[in-house]
Design a protein around this nucleic acid. Structure first.
Lengths: 243, 243
DNA sequence: ACAGGAAACTATGTCCGACATAGTTGTTGA
DNA sequence: TCAACAACTATGTCGGACATAGTTTCCTGT
């Protein structure tokens, strides 16, 4: 495991007083980064961090719990705190909190819709040749898995992630991923039921072609059609679950 | 102010042990709801809540700070905790986590763009007569403040909030508000500098008219134009700040 | 020698008490 | 009337204590 002591101490020499909560997270992020901690590594215990940072254990706990809610770390009684996501001090980790009514889960999809469409449009306009190849490859893979009758959801995620990456703005991918996670955390597909949006898989080929060929309006149109199909499936499924 | 004692006590009779953090927030939300607290009302002090809920002040503080990060309450030393947003016990609060590179803050605006456009489109299609009147009123107010040469940012927020509310999907408002807050938390307008998007204020009249008259394509178009103007302002400002 | 289990250890979860500090309210005196 | 001052209130911060779950060490019996 990486050693956190030497470089961290040196940093703290120059660290100014920690006053706001943001300072706290910032300093903590700097500590983790300087220590060279990677995903999966364990952080020093709270008491140790409190001593190093010169604040009380309460404040360290507050910061760590904040990170936990953001999914940056996982915490377990007795086991310690382990890093679950990359942390860089130059980046701003900002928590968004959504209030979702249980019965209106469909609304998450309504928010996802314009984001996906915009991402597809941007990808068609700005993707590099490398990224276009990537999109086409993911599409081929998705169709192969689909036609083999296997579970295509992971392939579908990879395909869409390739589009998000090609949009040139990583925030689209982050937002959509988190929205999807929110959806999955509440709705889990009933066993045996067909996966939502099954019928849209064949539409992914022309979508990929449109993006690869740089036809932004067409890419937007197909993506919109796909999402509308999925929305219908979701609505029907919800209806069935209720009745 | 609403009285929280009688009904809350009755509820706590049936409340099971609070175990997870989610239970805590859920119970607290139920308490606030049963007490009939409205936005602007003050919550009982932490010690009082701890006594009522049968948990320690630490846990109450944790929950309240969580709410503070979500923007549900505001907290001030000496003044107390006041409700800043509506709370319903049936809702799910889910945290999102975004990593934003400091120099690419402009990208938050790129995400906001399709959401605002979609919200405007939905508002034009689904707004109730009441909501259309509200939008028109907020627009009139905004233009009045603008022409008086005063700070129009609050009025602008109210106007856009009216549109989000009229979209029929509260998630749009929540998302955009949080994105805006993220932006504001990093970028604070330099004193004396013109407010970003100043030139777009007159365009808000035709935007409101389009929504009120139900012309969805036109509403989308004008909203897109407004956001593009703002994006240019932001880009120029960032350029100036760097050089 | 080795497997199984008990015991010690570690680190987070929870609680309590104390004090500091900012904001609010009440009081008093010119 | 109002301004300055004095209590009061409620959150912010800290330290210590114990509980509890998970991990490691070590010891014992076969």
């Amino acid at each position: 495991m990486a050693d956190i002591s030497t470089s961290a101490d040196a940093m703290l020499q120059h660290a100014r007083r920690i006053e706001t909560g943001r300072d706290m997270l910032e300093t903590l992020a700097g500590l983790v980064e300087l220590a060279g901690l990677k995903v999966g590594d364990r952080l020093p215990p709270e008491i140790e961090l409190a001593r190093r940072l010169g604040v009380s254990r309460s404040k360290v706990r507050e910061a760590l719990m904040s990170w936990q809610k953001m999914g940056i770390v996982t915490r377990n009684k007795g086991a310690g705190t382990v890093l679950a996501a990359e942390v860089t001090s130059g980046s701003i980790h900002l928590p968004l909190h959504l209030k979702i009514e249980a019965e209106s889960l469909l609304r998450t999809h309504a928010v996802r819709r314009p984001l996906e469409i915009e991402a597809a449009r941007l990808a068609a306009e700005h993707a590099t040749p490398q990224q276009r190849r990537e999109i086409r490859a993911r599409m081929t893979e998705l169709l192969a898995v689909y036609e083999a009758g296997e579970d295509w959801r992971d392939s579908d995620h990879r395909f869409h992630n390739a589009i998000h990456a090609a949009s040139g703005n990583p925030l689209f991918g982050q937002f959509i991923t988190q929205i999807q996670r929110a959806f999955d955390s509440v709705y889990t597909a009933p066993l045996g039921k067909p996966q939502l949006g099954q019928a849209t898989i064949p539409m992914h080929r022309p979508l990929a072609e449109a993006i690869v060929s740089g036809d932004a309006p067409r890419a937007s149109r197909i993506m919109a059609a796909i999402l509308d199909h999925v929305a219908e499936d979701v609505a029907r499924e919800m209806e069935a679950a209720r009745g």
